[in-house]
Amino acid sequence: MKVLQIIDSAYRCTIEEQDDPAVWITHAMKGAGADLDVLLCGNAVNYAVKGQDASGLRFGEIVQKNPPKLDNDIARLIGKNINVMVYTEDTAARGITEAQTLPGVRRVSRAEAPTIFSRYDQVWHW
């Protein structure tokens, strides 16, 4: 079974979790043998932007260590041979250029969705 993971909710609880839960569960299921690809849309296209830095937070005397590194987490998905796509309409609307996007991320149009979806047994929207 091959599943397309659509991720659009972004930066929702990433500081507390030190990652994005939808990206994390993709890694975890891949580790359990799952056959998955990822389509980033909406605000989650920003996860594919290079150079993110969520360091430096402190709450009282607690310094927040190990901040989330969403770009690194996406790059690691690609390193696991997971096909990561972004909608170009959503990157363009947010001013994200191809040069700012991680290498290996495939840029696709929303018009391609029916064709893309047809390649998967199931489509899971997180």
Binding site: R110, A111, A113, P114, T115, F117
Partner: peptide
């Protein structure tokens, strides 16, 4: 606005013959 994108997705899937 995401809902309008979702509507468009539904339309595009149907237009593609699904």
């Amino acid at each position: 606005r995401e809902v309008e994108n979702n509507y468009a997705l539904a339309s595009s899937l149907a237009t593609a013959g699904n």
